[in-house]
Amino acid sequence: MLTNGVLLGFILFQYSGIGVSPWLIFSAGILPHGIFELPAILFAAGVGIRLGVLSLRSVGVLIQPQKLAQLKNDWYDTLKQFPIAVLTVVVLLFVAAIVESTITPTILKETVGQQLQQLNLLK
């Protein structure tokens, strides 16, 4: 995520250097699909953190065996919800991909296409 942020900042900086509004590029080129993509990434990260915590608790049960029953229930609940979580992430990323490949180019062409053609950046 850090690399994506740095790259995005660099590209927006380059656009601002040639006279194109970076806020316009961001709102027309990134925001439409980012509305779906960012929640998917954060949700997937949350699921990964949950699995990591359960894994660490599984190691901790070696020290405190009396907590095994609760841990088993937590694993059962988490793994029962896992297919729905994965499906949610996949659907959100699929919708983001459709928006990015179909809607975003149209929005970009309508908002900054004229400026980019004048600067010979778009044909």
Rank of each mutant, 00 (worst) to 15 (best):
Q14R: 15
L8D: 10
I18F: 00
S16E: 13
I63R: 01
G17K: 09
I107T: 11
Y15N: 12
G9H: 02
K80R: 14
Q115M: 06
P65Y: 04
H33V: 01
Q64V: 12
Q118M: 10
G29T: 02
Q64P: 00
T111S: 15
S55Q: 04
G46E: 06
F94V: 06
V112E: 08
N73C: 04
R57A: 02
I98W: 11
M1E: 09
V99I: 15
F13P: 00
G29M: 05
L119Q: 06
V20G: 04
G48I: 09
G46Q: 05
Q115L: 08
K109Y: 03
L31F: 13
S16Y: 10
L12G: 11
F82G: 00
Y76G: 00
T104I: 06
Q114H: 13
T111I: 08
V61P: 00
T3P: 03
I25T: 07
L116P: 04
L51N: 06
S16Q: 14
L54S: 02
Q14D: 13
V91M: 07
F13I: 05
G34K: 02
I35S: 00
L68G: 00
T111V: 13
V90H: 04
F13L: 15
S16V: 01
N120L: 09
P65Q: 05
E37K: 07
N120Y: 09
I84E: 05
V91P: 01
E100G: 06
Q14T: 10
D74A: 14
P22G: 07
K109R: 13
D74S: 09
W75T: 03
I63Y: 01
L51F: 13
F13V: 01
F43H: 12
I98L: 15
A28Y: 11
G5F: 11
Q118F: 07
L7T: 12
V89P: 08
A96M: 05
R50T: 08
Q115P: 05
D77G: 05
V112S: 14
A40D: 08
S27I: 06
I84D: 02
K67V: 10
E100W: 01
I84Y: 13
V91G: 05
A96Y: 04
W23D: 09
A45D: 04
S101H: 13
I41M: 15
L42E: 05
